Simulated scan of single mutants.
Amino acid sequence: MNHNTPAPLSPRPLRHLADAQRRVMSGAQLKAHGVSAAAAQERCRAGGPWQRVLPGVFLLHPGPPTSEDRLHAVLLYAGRTPDLRHPADGVPAQPAAGQAHGGPGPAGLPCTDALVTGLAALALHGFAAAPPPASLHHIDVLVPRTRRLRSTEFARLVRATALPAPVQLSGVPVAPVPRALADAIGQLTDAGAVRLLLTEAVRGGHCEPAAVVRELTLARLLTRPHVVDAVDSLLAEGRAIAEDRLYAMVREYGLPEPLWNVDLRLPGGPHLGGVDAFWPDQAVAVELDTRTARAAGSDAFSEYVRKREHLERLGISVVHLTPRKLRESLEQQAMVVRTALMAAGDRDPAAYVVVLPR
């Protein structure tokens, strides 16, 4: 053996695993720490200090698995964890050749191709309507469609053509709320449970209704009557919240009081459409853009575009605000409206329109 030949790995004492507070490890990780498959199985015998929780995944204590244990276990089962030699303490483990670098997964190992989703993910996002992972019969884990693993025991695989960018919560890679909602709703038949989750998503400020509808559409869940009913309530809820934020914006940032929720018509002519706020002296209208993926290409969408173009041809400046912009940057949206009002004097006079309550 010359100086360029790596020294063979020597087994490490098993107590260092407990000292490292790694409660869940894969067979590959144990092997990297000098623990053979036979030794791991021996310690999992009845009365032993370890237990096997999923194929190739071991719990390094004899008690019942916690929520964190179960989450880490499904990620280790579903993710491609490299077969690593044990690194020095404090030195991050490196991916195997050809594996993409990603955020740290369970026990500090890379885990870039498996995300917790469904009800377990919603619980990590803080949803009160989602039960804790420890009480779930199954934990959904999102994996690439090309993975050959199967669902087993409490690990339920959900396949995707492309994984969304993960959200790191408590050290666990989690699907974003819209995707987690779609995966959870896909497993639910209780209309009340579906409604509770969707309502909490909007009221709790977790995401906008349009993002949820987009994911439900991609998952082909809008053919289910109980989901469609819940989505209709969600959209109404989301619009009401956006309207409240629009009222607050006008009050808090000292904008002139507009005419709220009015219809516009040409004198003796056709109906031009409704707007959420209108300043007649400046010919400025604000419209909440609460369209969803379902509206694209529909008659309603065509009508929306037609109304906007018609108003602008008449000299009425139309400011479009989305619920997300009102939630995330209220002051900036107030500046946009104020700028439109101040610019009114530089425009040609707008056509005279009749304003009616909507």
Results as ranks from 00 to 15, higher is better:
L188T: 07
G254F: 09
L221K: 02
A96D: 06
Y247Q: 13
L122C: 02
V286R: 05
R358L: 11
P106S: 14
V318D: 07
R291L: 15
R265I: 09
G274M: 11
L288G: 07
R52K: 09
P209W: 03
A343L: 15
P349S: 13
K307C: 08
A93V: 07
G63N: 00
P6L: 13
P225M: 15
M25P: 07
V212L: 11
M335A: 15
N4I: 11
V116T: 06
R327M: 12
P13N: 05
G102F: 02
V194G: 01
V167Y: 02
A242F: 01
M249Q: 14
G108S: 12
P11S: 09
A160H: 02
H86N: 11
E237G: 06
V53N: 06
R145N: 03
H101D: 15
D281K: 15
G98S: 08
A88S: 08
P65N: 12
A191D: 14
N261V: 05
V212P: 01
H226I: 09
G48H: 02
P11M: 08
S233P: 02
V158P: 00
M25N: 01
A351W: 03
G118F: 04
E328Y: 06
R195M: 10
P323T: 13
S317T: 15
V213C: 06
T152I: 12
G315R: 06
D232N: 04
V305D: 06
L197V: 08
V172C: 00
L76W: 00
L60M: 03
A296S: 14
E303D: 15
P55A: 09
V355H: 03
D113N: 09
L136D: 04
A351P: 10
A107G: 03
E237F: 02
R22P: 00
L122K: 03
H125S: 07
A162Y: 10
S298L: 08
P176D: 10
W260E: 01
L235D: 05
S10W: 03
V305M: 13
H33G: 08
S329E: 14
S170L: 10
V91N: 06
D348G: 13
I316T: 04
P65W: 08
Q41P: 00
Y247W: 13
R327S: 11
S233F: 05
S298A: 10
R52N: 14
P173L: 13
V228K: 05
P110K: 09
L71F: 01
D346A: 13
G345P: 05
H226M: 11
C207D: 11
D232C: 11
H137D: 15
Q332N: 05
A242P: 00
G27L: 15
A39P: 00
T152L: 08
L356A: 09
T5K: 11
C111D: 02
S135L: 10
